[in-house]
Design a protein around this nucleic acid. Sequence first.
DNA 1: TACAAACTACCACGATCGTTGTACTTTTGG
DNA 2: CCAAAAGTACAACGATCGTGGTAGTTTGTA
Lengths: 199, 199
Amino acid sequence: MTTRTAGKRRAILTGALTVFARDGYTRASIDAIAAEAGVSTRTIYKHFTDKAGLFQAVIRDSGARAAETQLAAIDRFLRKVTDLEADLTDFGVAMAAPSPGDEAHFALVRQINAEAGHIPPEAIEAWQEAGPRRVKRELARRLGELLPLSDPELAARHLMALIATAAPSPHDPPPSSSRTAELVAAAVRVFLYGYRGER
Amino acid sequence: MTTRTAGKRRAILTGALTVFARDGYTRASIDAIAAEAGVSTRTIYKHFTDKAGLFQAVIRDSGARAAETQLAAIDRFLRKVTDLEADLTDFGVAMAAPSPGDEAHFALVRQINAEAGHIPPEAIEAWQEAGPRRVKRELARRLGELLPLSDPELAARHLMALIATAAPSPHDPPPSSSRTAELVAAAVRVFLYGYRGER
DNA sequence: TACAAACTACCACGATCGTTGTACTTTTGG
DNA sequence: CCAAAAGTACAACGATCGTGGTAGTTTGTA
């Protein structure tokens, strides 16, 4: 196998994710990324053309991973629904309380949102299509099967916005998991009551 | 009057807001800010100690201005309510469709969210208290007078999250104002139905 | 009108950083 | 076991940038 180069490549991608997510594109230095990945700077340039190219690769990689995780959560909690409110709440908790690995991805998304004007539009577009939009469409599809909805995509947008209400803010200390569960439950209730009478 | 120095100071603050919001803290250069403000770099250092000090001053200034605008919207649309749904929608449109001046502030908030780990916590705290939290408290107070709510702060959070659904994304082209109005109206409906039956 | 404060233009310094070249070492596959 | 590929250490380049100094110019004011 190409085990060596693939391993290094992955190490670079995860190290770069950590540093880009923490420091942002401009502040992140190649040296810091190399140190975080346990790799020499020269090796980075063997695998990626530029700092910009590395950043885009990180966006693609982290976006695809996060999308997989979230699609898995949809499938896990929303495939067979017995108690809609309870299952939506479980789903929301899975979305709002990121495992330590996904933490960095959320910070990366914040960087992307801030840097939007300095990233090539094709890169943004590809990321959105493979990541957020894909998830939103799938969630809309499931919701449309579970509720009578005239605009499932909009409902998905509303649900995600409400659930994000329970996600830890980048400024405050992270809430306890029981507090998170309460917040998600409240958000889901608003969503369900809001869409109860149809529309 | 100190008309001269005050005018320059304001020019620096607005120019710095433009550049910081567009480029972020690290990428923004003092030269670019000086050019944008129509001022020499040396003058910037007469008015502010550091690049970091200038950034914090911009955060304070822009945050205070935005808070005033938003508090004014609360007062304007939610003081005397005749048709709750219509008035909440008008309020939401005012929040989600920023006038060109507030546009930069929204971008700045994205920069703050991305840079959170590199800004002194006191600065973040002061900004949040004078800006977002103040607005949220006032909105919660008004909502509590208009609806039977067990947790007005949470309701305010939900309403703002739903309304933000209609705000233009930093990636896509800005939606038409009529589309924005539709989205806000839908968000407000979900909120009202969601909180209709109490809680 | 004259003076002090504010402002400007210009230069220079030290630091950081992206990127590449080169010579050396390690690993892997035949 | 040995060649080729991958990785490393190290140095160097050019560019950008924050920041301060200095000397001259503008402007508000007494």
